[in-house]
């Protein structure tokens, strides 16, 4: 079970992350010249599209490896987890068929093309869902709502995370709690909160960072306790080495 990535909560939420390289190794941003990075990426996409058009299986694998995770995230965010794998595969097939059928006229813009396909897939799925609901409204009593629940393990993890955060929030002042509630629950902007609650930007950022750091700290302690318990359980049952 993993509640948090190690060290992620320690990062100051307000400092820009160090220039992490994208997974695309050829688009090396170390050069510090975005034009060069763009050119390298464009060359990579052109080469990939050419290989896909040649029905190169490794190119298909590379396309899937690079894009499937982003596509999955996008579809899940807009449509939920239901039938996600099918939707990802459908989208992937559409992209490949479009590439092979000449639908991608500018191979260097492969990323934008994939994004457009994914957006249209989301719209199409929503259209289908709305039409289905209309067709079945008169027959079903009570209507239907999509089941957006996660699997049981994810629900447990989510519950544990919110328990830890509730502990953090109960341990801070009412005012600080209100600030976090406004920002995360009511989605008010930083500017609005600072103006209405007479805060500086620095105070606001500091509060967010402290809360996040405390969250990470409690999470790590909980994980450590769980590991110790598991270890003791293994020793007690004699299953440990």
């Amino acid at each position: 079970m993993q509640l948090f990535s190690s060290g992620s909560a320690r990062q100051d939420a307000e400092d820009p992350a160090p220039d992490a390289r994208p997974d695309d190794k050829s688009a090396n941003t170390d050069s510090g010249r975005p034009e060069q990075a763009s050119e390298l990426a464009a060359e990579r996409w052109i080469a990939l599209v050419d290989r896909i058009r040649d029905h190169n299986e490794e190119a298909m694998e590379e396309l899937y490896r690079v894009f499937s995770r982003g596509i999955r995230y996008y579809l899940c965010r807009h449509l939920g987890p239901q039938e996600l794998e099918d939707k990802v595969h459908d989208t992937f097939l559409i992209v490949v068929q479009a590439i092979r059928g000449g639908g991608l006229r500018e191979p260097e813009k492969l990323m934008g093309f994939v994004r457009t396909v994914v957006r249209r897939q989301v719209a199409a799925f929503i259209d289908t869902a709305v039409q289905s609901r209309r067709d079945f409204t008169d027959l079903e009593v009570g209507g239907r709502v999509p089941d957006i629940r996660q699997n049981p393990e994810e629900r447990v993890l989510e519950g544990e995370r919110s328990d830890i955060m509730a502990k953090v929030m109960r341990g801070i002042s009412r005012r600080d709690r209100e600030i976090l509630t406004r920002f995360y629950l009511f989605e008010q902007t930083q500017e609005q909160i600072c103006e209405e609650m007479n805060l500086t930007e620095t105070q606001f950022r500091l509060l967010k960072s402290r809360a996040k750091a405390r969250f990470g700290e409690l999470g790590r302690r909980k994980l450590a306790r769980i590991k110790v318990r598991e270890l003791m359980l293994r020793k007690a049952t004699g299953s440990g080495h």
Partner: peptide
Amino acid sequence: EEHLLVCHKCLDRVEEEEKYFGAVRKAA
């Protein structure tokens, strides 16, 4: 959105933040 299609490191960060946001919302 295009960047997140291909950059798995940024996607990791976004997913991590999303979990954190969810935890804060539920707790609040």
